[in-house]
Simulated assay, not measured.
Amino acid sequence: MTIRRLEAGPRMSQAVIHGNTVYLAGQVGSPGESVTVQTRTILGQIDDLLAQAGSDKSRILSATIWLADMTTFAEMNAVWDAWVDTANAPARATGESRLATPDYKVEIIVVAACD
């Protein structure tokens, strides 16, 4: 079975496709932006990567969301809830973690089915 890598770099690929599954790297927004703006940016990046892999948000199997501060949970959820395919909501976990830089407030990782 082949492995295909999207937007591959020396350290990581933004997505790896194996079989009918696509694994996305953790997506982050622009440092210093609000949780709302970062979440919107991230979800747009996820849409783009899934499209490149022959998938879309209705085929997301799981999502892991890291917040720098859990007090922003409702703010992130407001953007997520407007974006997610409610007929095909994925399994999801959300936790608090120190991210790569204090300017990142949200990181989202998804695994999805693809063609």
Rank of each mutant, 00 (worst) to 15 (best):
Met1Ser: 15
Met1Arg: 12
Thr2Asp: 14
Thr2Gly: 11
Ile3Asp: 08
Ile3Gln: 14
Leu6Ser: 06
Glu7His: 15
Ala8Phe: 05
Gly9His: 11
Arg11Gly: 10
Ser13Thr: 10
Val16His: 03
Ile17Thr: 02
Ile17Trp: 02
Val22Ser: 07
Val22Ala: 09
Tyr23Phe: 15
Tyr23Leu: 13
Leu24Phe: 06
Gly26Ile: 03
Gln27Ile: 09
Ser30Tyr: 02
Ser30Ile: 10
Gly32Phe: 06
Ser34Leu: 06
Gln38Ile: 06
Arg40Val: 02
Thr41Pro: 00
Gly44Asn: 12
Gly44Met: 04
Gly44Thr: 08
Gly44Lys: 10
Gly44Pro: 05
Gly44Asp: 08
Gln45Trp: 00
Ile46Pro: 04
Ile46Cys: 03
Ile46Phe: 03
Asp47Ser: 12
Asp47Gln: 09
Asp48Cys: 04
Leu50Asp: 06
Leu50Lys: 04
Gln52Ile: 02
Gln52Arg: 14
Ala53Phe: 04
Lys57His: 12
Ile60Tyr: 07
Thr64Asp: 14
Ile65Thr: 12
Ile65His: 01
Trp66Tyr: 15
Met70Glu: 11
Met70His: 08
Phe73Gly: 00
Phe73Met: 13
Glu75Arg: 07
Glu75Gly: 01
Glu75Pro: 05
Asn77Met: 13
Ala78Phe: 05
Ala78Gly: 05
Trp80Lys: 01
Val84Phe: 03
Val84Asp: 01
Thr86Ser: 14
Thr86Val: 14
Thr86Cys: 08
Ala89His: 08
Ala89Val: 10
Ala89Phe: 05
Pro90Cys: 03
Arg92Gly: 00
Thr94Lys: 08
Glu96Phe: 05
Glu96Cys: 07
Arg98Trp: 10
Arg98Met: 13
Tyr104His: 15
Lys105Trp: 01
Val106Ser: 09
Glu107Leu: 11
Glu107Lys: 10
Ile108His: 04
Ile108Tyr: 03
Ile109Arg: 12
Ala112Val: 01
Ala112Trp: 01
Ala113Gln: 13
Ala113Thr: 10
Cys114Trp: 03
Cys114Pro: 03
Cys114Asn: 03
